[in-house]
Design a protein around this nucleic acid. Structure first.
Lengths: 111, 111
DNA sequence: GCTTTATATCAGTCCATACTTATATGAGTC
DNA sequence: GACTCATATAAGTATGGACTGATATAAAGC
């Protein structure tokens, strides 16, 4: 599953937001998400599985608990993909961006 | 449709990549995407509609052609969402990130 | 004004995936 | 070892959305 597909789900985004603040147990996150989205423990667990398998989260076992931590590697990919658009909003470069948008299609016509 | 859902589709991401290089006509992009993904003109048009409605692209009419341009506003949102994870990969802050991940859950215990 | 070219929209199909219920696994407790 | 937590998995359902084929709209060219 592509990183962007993983981030496409609001429940998974919320789980990642929780993990961004630090490690959390499955049950801890499940309580929060269940309250906010009204879904079952099973559903949350399945979302956590997606996060694990896509490399967004790692798990550590602590007794009967599973402690999750965010793994930002796949997000770097997403961030890198966004790079090509940064010049469209990076303040000092807005004029340049406009120029590129209008002009790049005319490459090859010489200076 | 949420910005992340829009970016969840590979065809739409490809269309945005094309637009990142500068303005392009619908037909121009359709040729590229059709060759790469093997889908119909109708399908591409529908994807362009999604991009328009989600604010990722704007259109200008030029005779019988529709000239598309990227509009990066929704991507800023995505970029802003990623902010909370940046400390997990920004080089100088990696040690800090680890500390935060391990420690933040213990907030409130005093210094 | 008919034909072609460029693009969008409509109606319907199909499939991926988010969900539910039920059950399994395994740690802690008595 | 029976019982209860904490979590995951299995099996089945249903719904959103990506797609196709057909058609609409509207500009260009003859």
């Amino acid at each position: 599953m592509h990183a962007f597909d993983v981030l496409g789900d609001p429940v998974r985004r919320r789980l990642l937001e929780l993990l961004a603040e630090g490690e959390r147990s499955s049950g801890d996150m499940t309580s929060v998400v269940q309250a906010e989205f009204g879904i079952t423990q099973s559903a949350v667990s399945q979302h956590l599985k997606v996060l694990r398998e896509a490399g967004f989260a790692s798990v550590r076992i602590d007794g009967a608990r599973r402690i999750y931590a965010v793994d930002a590697a796949p997000m770097r990919e997403v961030d890198a993909w966004l790079d090509r658009f940064r010049l469209y909003w990076t303040p000092k470069l807005e004029a340049l961006a406009t120029e590129v948008a209008r002009g790049k299609r005319r490459r090859g016509e010489g200076p």
